[in-house]
Design a protein around this nucleic acid. Sequence first.
RNA 1: GGUAAGAUGGCAGAACGGUUAUGCGUGGGCCUGCAAAGCCUAUACAAGGGGGUUCGACUCCCUCUCUUACCUCCA
Length: 489
Amino acid sequence: MTVLFDTLSGRKIDPVRPGSSTVGIYLCGVTVYDDVHIGHARTIVVFDVLRNHLERTGGLSVRMVQNFTDVDDKIIARARAEDTTAAAISGRYINRYHDELNRLGVQRADVYPRATEHIGDMIHFIEDLVRKGVAYRSENGVYFAVSKFPRYGALSKKRTDDLQLGARVEVDETKENPLDFALWKFASDEPTWDSPWGAGRPGWHIECSAMSTRYLGGDTIDVHGGGRDLIFPHHENEIAQSESRMDGEFARIWMHVGMVTIQGEKMSKSLGNIRTLNKVLHDWGANVIRLFCLSGHYSKPIDYSEENLSESLARWRQIEACSCELAHAARKGALGDDAYDKAVAATDNDDNDNDNDNDVSDTGAEFDWALDHDLNTHLALVALMRLVSDTNNKIAGGTLNAGWASRAGAELSRMTGVLGLTIPEMTEEYCMSIDAIVAERNTLRMNREYKRADEIRDRLAAQNIEILDRGGGETVWIRREPVCGDAGS
RNA sequence: GGUAAGAUGGCAGAACGGUUAUGCGUGGGCCUGCAAAGCCUAUACAAGGGGGUUCGACUCCCUCUCUUACCUCCA
């Protein structure tokens, strides 16, 4: 059973309802007026892993909905600045979003609803709220009356009194209460939509309430999440408006992902410390970024730094090497190297003979256990790395046999699959061609023609193939994913 | 000013009321034609300060200090 920490109740809750085999997840996506950055990416990667874990390990069917906010003052401002339309701006960034997240290895959501395509739903939603007497029309728009929702502040653990005292915003005198938030804003400049109250645009929060209702069955959502910074006011307001309308619980679990920081400070436009996903992807590659995003618990901040990324790179290098080692051992077994396996079996008997098989499944269980417990990816990574180091131990001890290699190989690819890491596929032909070159080099080495042997090694290195010479004339090669490394970020 | 979260060994970062986290780094060794990778071994008094609860606390409670986030758009 998987449990996730719910921000609202402070408890760990099973995202799966009793008797159900499906989980509905709504992830608050991005406002598409600029490039996606590593902070957005972390949130999305976390939810991607959650989804993989529920689907692959839990055998559940996950419905993933992620919105695009494509109507917003910033989009409009940007459109003006570029002398184009808001739709052109949002379209451009949505395309980039898909392209970059695809490169990051993120599985596509089932639906990507856009605010502008659901104006009708939002209007109906607001009408219901007005009818219920929790929303009112004023000079500048239609507002939600926070005073009509006693639980307001429950998610962000704020009392409405405190909020009023601390308000730094300029108070809009036309509102009944400074905390009231806009459901519909009157506007005359494009883009606008007609509504029963007048032409204008929807407020920000209403889109998520309307679209999550539409795409996740209209009942209580299983998991609703996003970045920590959305807790207030965005999610708080969503709860207020949605629960006022449906008279029930809006979401069973509120899951919030910590910020990505730069030297301890939140990444933000105003500080000018944004690292775009595009750039980071170019510098480190998808696997290293994902390992970085998963290196700490999702609820805590992680610091984007050269050191931290390098550590993730080192981890990735080990995983890569392990995968090639296992493939190598499995190939050798497949070729019927009986003498080899027998020799290994003999060695195996010396120490704790048959606990080898258990090691693999134990490590797999440890991995699953970690993810089951509030998606503890850090601990899951520890399990993954243990499989790597167990393999290395066997290699060093000369006890790596084909059977273990194939089991460990399968487990490794299962784990990396859940984490969304991609080890490049290698065709049989490719492996054989590299094997042939390696054999040629080994012949040269036996003849002490080291200079020519080193040339071959260099040539392979240029193709990102690393050569590991082992005793007994055995050589293993490892395919490396090229990574630029971060040049002085 | 209000609210919340957090302070773990050189760095990163978990779990847990009593047992080695783990990884990176660093020293030494093994392996190699040389490398690289890996293995072995060593290294770390670890728990922000002060109280308390307990047979026993890094883990629970109080307090102080500091950090970050949120209170405006924000993943």
